[in-house]
């Protein structure tokens, strides 16, 4: 007996599992272990995407990992991904050279509510490589600067030498219509910026907390501290958005790996509202 409402009108392949082929068009080394790749589809045009979404990148014979999109529409028919070498698959992807071919599925997931934040103050809080998934949202807000009230970018990183997108941060900082604050965990006296953790910057730039929407991305501990600091500063938890990370295999909500309480990070996230996850976020080993 057939299942009710089976949606099988399309060709009978498992195509949600099958990657499209993308050629590596450019590789830029960001840090000793981090590169940014520009990927163009071998045929056709790349699908549209929203800031905060991710793709599954496949290195031939090695495996597949979820990587956030770190570029914006100015990249034309290309996907921009910033990848850190932390394992077999990310290492293989980081070692790819222009001309190499990677598999790509996506984009997947729920991104940053950039449009919904129009009319508000926007605070981006990034930690380390967490700046990469925020970058498309920052670029979109800056492109439509007039639609937002005050905008701040708070960035925490390990030390001045390991600073992702340093030139971009410097160019953003030159603008008069956004506030950019960078803090590092460790520095020598040559560093004239902030030393300390990124939540500590929040009181320095807090605008009207009732009008602020915060987009937060970084290691989970950093996001927990940041969300707490934002709440303490008066930002309502439903106006705080975090980009979560869990193990992902299928990216389409049917392999079960990325469960985070009742949610699947791949399809209910990765960007999730703090008020909806605060209880779960505080639990160990969830």
């Amino acid at each position: 007996m057939a299942p009710p409402d089976a949606r099988l009108e399309e060709p009978h392949t498992t195509d949600a599992f099958v990657p499209d082929l993308y050629r590596v068009e450019a590789v830029r080394r960001e840090l000793s272990d981090t590169v940014t790749l520009e990927l163009a589809p071998i045929s056709g045009t790349r699908p549209a995407y929203a800031p905060g979404q991710f793709n599954m990148l496949y290195a031939f014979g090695v495996g597949e990992i979820a990587i956030s999109i770190s570029g914006n529409h100015e990249s034309g028919n290309r996907f921009i991904h910033t990848v850190r070498d932390v394992g077999a698959v990310s290492g293989a992807i980081c070692r790819s050279a222009p001309g190499d071919v990677l598999g790509l599925r996506g984009p997947f997931g729920v991104g940053w509510p950039v449009a919904a934040a129009e009319g508000s103050d926007v605070m981006f809080v990034a930690g380390g490589l967490g700046l990469a998934p925020l970058r498309p949202a920052i670029l979109e807000v800056l492109e439509n600067r007039a639609r937002y009230d005050r905008v701040a970018i708070l960035f925490g990183t390990r030390n001045p030498a390991d600073m992702l997108f340093r030139h971009q941060l410097e160019s953003w900082r030159q603008r008069l219509d956004i506030e950019v604050e960078v803090t590092v965990d460790h520095a020598d006296p040559d560093w004239h910026g902030h030393v300390g953790v990124v939540p500590g910057l929040i009181p320095h730039v807090m605008f009207d907390p009732a009008e602020t929407v915060a987009f937060v991305c970084g290691p989970e501990v950093m996001m927990r501290f940041t969300a707490t600091a934002l709440t303490a500063a008066g930002v309502a938890s439903e106006r705080i958005h975090l980009s979560m990370e869990r193990n992902m295999k299928c990216a389409i909500g049917i392999c079960g790996h990325c469960q985070f309480g009742p949610d699947f990070v791949c399809k209910d996230g990765p960007v999730m509202r703090y008020d909806r996850i605060a209880e779960i976020l505080a639990l160990r080993e969830i």
């Binding site: 299942p3 949606r7 099988l8 009978h12 949600a16 909500g253 049917i254 399809k267």
Partner: peptide, 11 residues
Amino acid sequence: LEGPYVDKAYG
């Protein structure tokens, strides 16, 4: 079969 993506081989 009833999510945003369908496992067509299962279907």
